[in-house]
Design a protein around this nucleic acid. Structure first.
Length: 349
DNA sequence: AATACGGGGGG
DNA sequence: CCCCCAGTATT
C-alpha cells in the first residue's frame, strides 16, 4: 500500500479529537496554526479556546486593542506571533473580511510562512500542498533514512520535494493532518512506538537501528546571561510603576518593572547610583528591601535571566504610578507574572 | 545562511 | 541538563 494510504488509515484509527479539526473556518484554522507554531498542542489548546471565545470572528480580533491581544497571549512566548496575528487580522478585514484562499496568497499575511500557508490552504481549501513541520521532518527522515540536516536550506529543499511527492492528491487535508499527528504521537522524538508501527518493515532507520539518530539537526544556541535588578515601587497609596519594553527584541512591547541591568551581581548602593534608578527615584525618600536574596533564574532557549526584585517603598506618591488592578491588566512576560502572583498574594491585606 | 525570538515538558 | 515543539522574520 502507498505511504499516504497507510498514513490515512493510521490516522482514521488513532487521531486525537481537537477543536480546530472540527471546522473548515479559515479564521479558526489560521488562529490554531499560529498558536501551535513551536508550541505543543497541550500548551496551546487553552489559549485557542480563550481566543475563540474572546474574538469569535476575525473582525473582533482586528478591532481589539493590541494590548488586549498581547494580554491574551501572555505566557505563550514568541510574542511577535501575537502582534503579527493582530496585524494579519487587520489585513484580512481591509481585504473585505475574507481570508486568502490559496497557498500563494496566504503567504502575504503577517506571520504566515510556508508551513502555515500550506496548513490553511490544504485544511480549508483542499489545495495539494504539503505541510513540512518538525513532525514531518522526523517521520520522513526516519522512514527514508535521510540524514540531511533539517535546518539547512538544501536539507529543507530535499524534504519539501519528498513531501510533495508523497502527499495524497485525493485528500491532502487529511493527509497533512495525518503525517503530523503520526509524528506527534507515534514517531516521537524519544521512545517512538516502533513495535506497533505500520511502517516498521519499510522504515530505513528502524531496519538500520538508527531511529534515535534521525533526524539530523546542526545547531547549538548559545545562551546569554542577563542580570536584571527590578525596582518594585510601592507608594503610600499602594501604587507601583510598570514600563513598556521596546517594540523590538525580547519580550517586545510587554510591560515590566523598571530595572537596572548589570554584568553580574550588584550591591544596593551600586544599584542606587545607577542612572535608571536616579531617573526613577532621584530625590524621593524611600525604604528598600530585597525580595529575593538569591537570584530568580528564568531560563529561555537563548537567554538565562538572573532576576533580583527590590521593593522600594516610597514616602510620597510617584508620577505615573498605577494601581495593582491597573497593573494586572498589562501584558507581562512569565518572570514578571510569577513575581506578581507571589508578591501580591503576600502583600494582600 | 545565521540568528533572534519564549516557555514548557520529557527523559 | 539537553532536546524538542503544527515556524517566521530579520539580518
Amino acid at each position: 500500500m502507498e505511504i499516504s494510504a497507510r498514513l490515512l488509515e493510521w490516522y482514521k484509527n488513532h487521531h486525537r479529537s481537537l477543536p480546530w479539526r472540527k471546522t473548515r473556518d479559515p479564521y479558526k484554522i489560521w488562529l490554531s496554526e499560529i498558536i501551535l507554531q513551536q508550541t505543543r498542542v497541550n500548551q496551546g489548546l487553552p489559549y485557542y479556546l480563550n481566543f475563540i471565545e474572546t474574538f469569535p470572528t476575525v473582525d473582533d480580533l482586528a478591532r481589539a486593542p493590541q494590548e488586549q491581544v498581547l494580554k491574551l497571549w501572555q505566557g505563550l512566548g514568541y510574542y511577535s506571533r501575537a502582534r503579527n496575528l493582530h496585524k494579519a487580522a487587520q489585513q484580512v478585514v481591509e481585504d473585505g473580511g475574507i481570508f486568502p484562499t490559496s497557498y500563494k496568497d496566504l503567504l502575504t499575511l503577517k506571520g504566515v510562512g510556508a508551513y502555515t500557508a500550506a496548513a490553511i490552504a490544504s485544511f480549508c481549501y483542499d489545495e495539494v500542498v504539503p505541510v513540512v513541520d518538525g513532525n514531518v521532518y522526523r517521520v520522513l527522515s526516519r522512514l527514508m533514512g535521510i540524514s540531511s540536516p533539517i535546518n539547512t536550506t538544501p536539507g529543507q529543499k530535499e524534504f519539501r520535494a519528498l513531501a510533495t511527492m508523497l502527499i495524497s492528491k485525493k485528500d491532502p487535508a487529511t493527509y497533512n493532518q495525518a503525517i503530523m499527528e503520526f509524528g506527534a504521537t507515534h514517531c516521537t522524538p524519544k521512545n517512538p512506538l516502533c513495535n506497533s508501527c505500520p511502517f516498521q518493515t519499510d522504515c530505513v532507520a528502524f531496519n538500520m537501528g538508527k531511529v534515535d539518530e534521525l533526524p539530523v539537526k546542526v545547531k547549538k544556541t548559545k545562551v546569554k546571561n542577563l542580570f536584571h535588578h527590578y525596582l518594585v515601587v510601592l507608594t503610600p497609596q499602594n501604587k507601583t510603576i510598570l514600563q513598556q519594553r521596546p517594540q523590538s527584541g525580547i519580550w517586545a512591547g510587554l510591560y515590566e518593572f523598571p530595572f537596572v541591568e548589570s554584568i553580574g551581581n550588584l550591591l544596593f548602593h551600586e544599584l542606587r547610583e545607577d542612572q535608571v534608578f536616579q531617573e526613577l527615584l532621584g530625590g524621593v525618600r524611600f525604604r528598600e528591601s530585597v525580595y529575593n536574596q538569591d537570584p530568580i533564574v528564568h531560563k529561555l532557549s537563548h537567554r538565562k535571566v538572573h532576576a533580583y526584585f527590590w521593593v522600594i517603598e516610597t514616602e510620597t506618591e510617584i508620577p505615573n504610578a498605577i494601581t495593582r488592578d491597573e497593573a494586572a491588566e498589562k501584558p507581562v512576560h512569565v518572570l514578571i507574572e510569577r513575581f506578581m502572583r507571589e508578591f501580591w498574594n503576600i502583600t494582600k491585606e
